[in-house]
């Protein structure tokens, strides 16, 4: 792995250089609500540097909340069908956390494994992920339990770690190397060293190996009821989650013009499994939440070989009822 260093005072110059080179740069921005969200920015001044985790994940860059699959127009000359694939810009995601970046491994597996998804591919190809390792964590963070850590390089193209006056830069992929080329003079070559003292301490709450084994028999656990009765059935956890990929295809428009959209959906919604007949195979919220948690820790392991929880803690911070995913996983695998 190639290592470089940059003075922390040169970070804004590097950042603005990427914008000047014509890339769309998505970075954490402090909103009026006091929460930090990813947003396209025009300069480094807008970027928030003081955040533990963004409100929503960066998945929207490759899997937007509404993706227009195509639009159509009908007139006397016939039907014209168009899509927006050619308008997807070169994008840089700045400041996502290592957990978020590793979620892109799962997203890639999910969208590309069997029937490669054109829209995801197009967006992923044009996206560079510049992650920043965590110097702070809160009690909702549990990345170390899912075999990641505040300095994991998995999934990122570049990982930045602030080390006092300078920033330690790991160039993980070719894309990452290309990104620093835009401002090559700002960087000096460096050598590999331990990041440990500059990283947040996140205590591991469970052993993933044990959970993987025990969750196999957890489906009938009586603990699900205690763990999930409080679930209101909203989509706050799923929409904030970096690895939740459920979607709903919607057609909008009239007989003369319209579009087909792919919108975020959530398995916690009662409507998610409701049949046209009115029958709902997942009758209550306990079953719906079990589905979400079992999917993260069991089904995705069976289907794609990856645990699809990265320990970012968003579902915990966003839950209106303060339900805690790792507490619940602990209790059902006891």
């Amino acid at each position: 792995m190639e290592i470089k260093n940059i003075k922390s005072t040169n970070i804004p110059a590097f950042f603005d250089q990427m914008i000047k080179s014509g890339k769309v740069v998505i970075a954490p921005v402090l909103k009026k609500s006091g929460k930090v969200f990813f947003e396209a920015v025009q300069s480094y001044d807008q970027v928030s540097t003081d955040y533990i985790q963004t409100g929503f994940s960066a998945k929207s860059v490759v899997f937007p909340k509404v993706e227009e699959l195509f639009s159509f127009k009908k007139d006397d000359e016939g039907i014209e069908i168009t899509n927006n694939l050619h308008t997807i810009p070169e994008t840089v995601v700045w400041g996502l956390r290592p957990c978020d970046a590793s979620a892109f491994n799962y997203l890639t597996e999910f969208f590309l494994k069997e029937n490669p998804d054109t829209y995801f591919t197009a967006r992923k190809e044009k996206t560079t992920l510049i992650a920043i390792s965590c110097a702070k964590a809160d009690n909702a963070c549990f990345c170390t339990s899912v075999e990641l850590n505040p300095g994991s390089t998995s999934g990122s193209d570049i990982l930045l770690t602030a080390m006092g006056e300078s920033v330690y830069i790991e160039l993980i992929t070719e894309k990452g190397k290309a990104a620093v080329e835009t401002a090559a003079s700002l960087f000096t070559p460096g050598e590999e060293k331990s990041k440990e003292e500059f990283l947040a301490k996140v205590t591991s709450v469970f052993s993933m190996d044990e959970v993987k084994v025990r969750i196999k028999t957890a489906y009938d656990s009586a603990e699900w009821k205690h763990a999930s009765m409080g679930c209101f059935g909203c989509g706050a956890c799923a929409f904030a989650c970096p690895t939740c990929t459920c979607f709903d295809i919607q057609d909008e428009g009239t007989q003369d013009s319209g579009k087909r959209l792919r919108c975020w959906d959530a398995c916690g919604f009662g409507l998610f499994t409701k049949h046209t007949s009115g029958h709902n195979p997942r009758t209550n919220q306990t079953e719906r939440r079990r589905q979400r948690l079992m999917h993260k820790f069991k089904y995705s392991v069976e289907n794609l070989g990856i645990v699809s929880c990265v320990g970012c803690g968003r579902c915990i911070r966003n839950c209106p009822a303060h339900l805690n995913i790792f507490e619940n996983i602990l209790s059902v695998t006891k």
Partner: peptide
């Protein structure tokens, strides 16, 4: 009290 110290509904 949930593991992360916030009050969580219980039945």
């Amino acid at each position: 009290e949930a593991i992360h110290k916030l009050p969580v509904p219980c039945f």
